[in-house]
């Protein structure tokens, strides 16, 4: 912006002059105004957008206050030192050490979050798995756990609770893997600051809540639903499944629609549609699987 300062000051002076003239006789906008503004706009376009800068490079950045506010914002009591440790990446700590050696300062003890990451990972995946197993069968629980503990999801959560600016790392912008690792470390830090139960509540609030408005059957997608269904029903004592073509329309066109119902002992197990009989059969199997799993929890209680 310093580049434009003289221009702006000239412009301001001219505008001031213009205003004084306007009051006397001329009501028009001066001929030089539009070309000048156009030129300024052209120069701005030529320079391009300002590069994204880390929030910590701003003048009023106060790391201590931000770290304090992080816990308070989430309503969690963190041990300050452990939280700070959880936010430091290994690479960052190494470089700080090397720099300190070069300058000859006495080494400050910088610890990184390297040990906290696997601990946090373990807490997250085990808690999510146990919580989901209460409601869903193993296959679905596993798939949904994979989805919730994926790098993409955890980094999404981490960036939205404001970890992106707090992480001490060498890279900018912060990579997804770093965000994900730091989130795991923060969970481990919470466990060390308080206890496991509190850490699990934290996971419940921030990780499990990501399932809100989502359908688990969109996350879990068996590759061969019909085979899966036959195996599932075999375990439950149903040996024979009879697929029936219930309805069809426009079967000789590109908009063909078939309806297939799966029956066993004259009872409907599931119904599905599709642009071919094969697809309809598969979707009918998916529907049947959902119907079988619908009252999964009640079955557990009965046992």
């Amino acid at each position: 912006m310093s580049l434009f300062k003289p221009t702006f000051s000239v412009l301001r002076r001219c505008v001031a002059l213009n205003v004084s003239i306007r009051t006397s006789e001329s009501r028009s906008i001066k001929r030089w105004v539009a070309p000048t503004l156009k030129e300024l706009y052209r120069r701005r376009e030529k320079v391009g957008p300002e590069p994204e800068k880390p929030r910590s490079s701003y003048l009023e950045w106060n790391y201590e206050a931000e770290v304090f506010a992080f816990g308070k914002r989430l309503g969690e009591e963190f041990d300050r030192d452990i939280l700070k440790k959880a936010l430091i990446q290994k690479e960052y700590a190494n470089i700080q050490e090397i720099k300190a050696k070069e300058t000859g300062q006495n080494l400050p003890t910088i610890t990184d979050n390297y040990e906290l990451i696997p601990e946090g990972d373990g807490i997250i995946s085990s808690y999510v798995m146990t919580e989901l197993s209460k409601k869903y069968p193993e296959d679905i629980a596993k798939a949904v756990t994979n989805y919730l503990t994926s790098e993409e999801m955890l980094s999404y959560i981490a960036s939205h609770i404001g970890l992106k600016d707090l992480i001490l790392t060498n890279e900018f912008p912060v990579a997804n893997s770093t965000l994900c690792n730091t989130f795991k470390a923060v969970v481990a830090a919470l466990k060390q600051s308080q206890n496991l139960a509190q850490a699990e509540k934290f996971i419940h609030d921030f990780v499990l809540s990501q399932l809100n408005g989502k359908n688990v059957y969109e996350i879990w997608d068996p590759k061969e639903p019909y085979k899966y269904l036959t195996r599932l029903l075999h375990q439950r004592g149903i040996k024979e499944i009879e697929p029936r073509l219930c309805n069809q329309s426009a079967s000789n066109t590109v908009l063909a629609c078939f309806q297939v119902g799966l029956y066993s002992n004259r009872e409907l197990l599931g119904i599905g549609w599709g642009e071919s009989v094969h697809i309809a059969k598969d979707t009918a199997a998916l529907d049947a699987i959902q119907r079988v799993y619908k009252n999964y929890t009640t079955q557990l209680e009965n046992k």
Partner: peptide, 16 residues
């Protein structure tokens, strides 16, 4: 999901 997709397909199916 696959089931929602075919539901849409069936809803807008043309009947002769």
């Amino acid at each position: 999901s696959a089931l929602k997709r075919v539901q849409q397909w069936a809803t807008f199916a043309r009947v002769w």
